[in-house]
């Protein structure tokens, strides 16, 4: 629609992923613009997590291309990949904080070792980020002393502190007790307000409806349908999406 398309922050082109004989992803094309929050939904096994993990090459794509701010993620040397990964923040379902390091050290480690920031600079930045996720007072706590929701927020701070261009959320609230989900969603909402580009794989449909710019529905390794949340939830076109939505709302009820 727009005349001059700006450079997408993240661009996935003709992405394919096979595990042996099984085709997990089939000709995925997706563009995420700066500041956009793209929500990916779909049944389990639809390939949405795999797609996300291909974006920073935790999973090696079989073919296709991925660009971050126009720079390729694929076919680059190892060193370059480490550098590119700094631009792509990732939040995992299982948090994966380093259990031997305090919250603060969790956030400073990559800043110092991968970005080469000084100790003082990294700590200042870490405290700023912990403050942003509401956990500045827990800076010296060990992960085992934090609730799941707090651990996940520290994990978000750990990714944010590296100034990524885009943040990937891989089912960030699925491992949390229901009463802790809200605190993590709040942080994500704040991030959106601040204009962070985000791709979120999640089952939190309410959150998708209210916060997403665009919702992508995946099934069987392909993108079946995509559009603004009102469209996807209010006026689904494909039968597969309709079936999925009725199943999910059934579960919620």
């Amino acid at each position: 629609m727009t005349a001059a398309q700006p450079l997408p922050t993240l661009e996935i082109t003709a992405l394919e992923k096979r595990f042996g004989e099984t085709q997990v992803l089939r000709s995925i094309d997706l563009k995420v613009q700066n500041g956009e929050l793209v929500f990916v939904i779909g049944p389990s096994g639809s390939g949405k997590s795999t797609m996300l993990r291909c974006c920073n090459r935790l999973e090696e794509p079989t073919s296709g291309a991925i660009h971050v701010n126009g720079k390729p993620m694929l076919g680059i040397p190892r060193k370059e990949l480490d550098r590119m990964r700094l631009q792509v923040g990732m939040v995992f379902q299982g948090f994966f904080l380093y259990p031997h390091l305090s919250a603060l050290k969790n956030v400073t480690l990559a800043q110092r070792k991968a970005l080469g920031r000084s100790k003082a600079e990294a700590e200042a930045r870490a405290l700023e980020m912990l403050d942003k996720v509401g956990l500045k007072h827990k800076a010296d706590a060990m992960p085992s002393e934090l609730s799941g929701g707090q651990q996940q927020r520290v994990a978000i701070a750990r990714a944010l502190a590296l100034d990524p261009k885009v943040m990937l959320f891989d089912e960030p609230t699925s491992a949390l007790d229901p009463e802790l989900v809200g605190s993590v969603l709040k942080v994500m909402r704040d991030l959106r307000e601040l204009g962070m580009t985000m791709i979120v794989v999640s089952h939190e449909m309410h959150f998708a409806r209210e916060a997403a710019d665009r919702v992508v529905f995946m099934d069987g390794g392909v993108i079946v349908e995509e559009g603004p949340p009102e469209e996807i939830f209010g006026n689904p076109k494909s039968d597969r999406l309709k079936a999925f939505l009725s199943r999910v709302s059934g579960e919620a009820a």
Binding site: L58, D82, L86, V88, G94, F96, Y98, A110, K113, A114
Partner: peptide, 26 residues
Amino acid sequence: PRGQWEAGAATGLSFLQVLVHVIFPQ
């Protein structure tokens, strides 16, 4: 958990850095 290696890699740490700073201390 594999996530320990992945969390390190996803934050731009090299394999050696993950080994030295994340895996070995644990």
